[in-house]
Computed example of a mutant assay.
Amino acid sequence: MTEKEKDIRTDSQDAQNGQQAQQEQVDTANAGADKLPEEDALDKKQRELDEMRDKYLRLVAEFDNFKKRNAKERIELMQTANKEVIISLLDVLDDSDRASKQLETSTDINIIKDGVTLVFNKLKSTLQAKGLKPMESLQTPFDADLHEAITEIPAPTEALKGKVLDELQKGYYLNDKLIRHAKVVVGK
């Protein structure tokens, strides 16, 4: 090989090495440029994730506070639910106290009887005003959903078989909802 050929070959290798170096710089620059949008997208997604996590944690905390507040209100409501009924019965209690004092000093049985009747009627009307209604059971067909049979006795007539003959304890409705079954004697 001649000197000239060696120089050409060296120059061509240098050129190739230079091109490779330039290509590597371009690749490195392109890779950096490619990474910037990827890193920005990754950072953006991370911020979105952090925002969503924050919203979720706040929502969970708010719901937890709501449950606690609701439970507290429910407890307060249950503690004071009967307040209205108790207040309305205080008048009956006052009348009962007055009647009790009269029982100690009075000797007339008719006055005592009238006083007790007045107190009883006031109690009855107060409870009815609050929605209490007595159940009518006598001579009605026995119904296990409404009545509790204490005993069965022979029916005096054929028409009274399977019907309520006597009521040992009255049943009651509160606003048309059964709150106490009637204890009854049934004819068989």
Rank of each mutant, 00 (worst) to 15 (best):
K4E: 15
K6P: 14
D7K: 15
D7P: 01
I8L: 03
Q13H: 10
Q13R: 14
Q20F: 10
Q22M: 05
Q23S: 04
E24T: 08
E24P: 06
D27H: 09
L36S: 09
E38S: 03
E39L: 10
L42V: 02
K45V: 15
R47Y: 14
E48Q: 12
E51L: 08
D54K: 07
K55V: 06
Y56H: 12
R58D: 08
L59A: 11
E62C: 04
D64P: 15
F66Y: 05
K67P: 06
R69H: 07
R69L: 13
A71K: 08
A71D: 13
K72D: 10
E73S: 06
E73V: 04
R74I: 12
L77W: 12
L77S: 10
T80I: 07
T80Q: 05
T80V: 05
K83M: 07
I86F: 03
D91W: 02
D94E: 06
D94F: 04
D97L: 14
R98Q: 04
A99E: 03
A99C: 09
S100V: 08
I109R: 14
N110G: 08
I111S: 14
I111Q: 14
V116F: 02
T117F: 02
F120W: 11
T126V: 01
L127T: 00
A129Y: 14
P134R: 01
M135T: 01
T140Y: 09
F142I: 01
F142L: 01
D145P: 00
E148G: 06
E148V: 06
I150C: 02
I150S: 10
I150E: 07
E152K: 10
A155R: 03
L160D: 11
L160K: 07
V164G: 00
V164E: 02
V164C: 05
E167I: 13
Q169K: 01
G171V: 00
Y173N: 02
N175R: 05
N175F: 04
L178F: 00
I179N: 03
V184F: 05
V186N: 02
G187T: 08
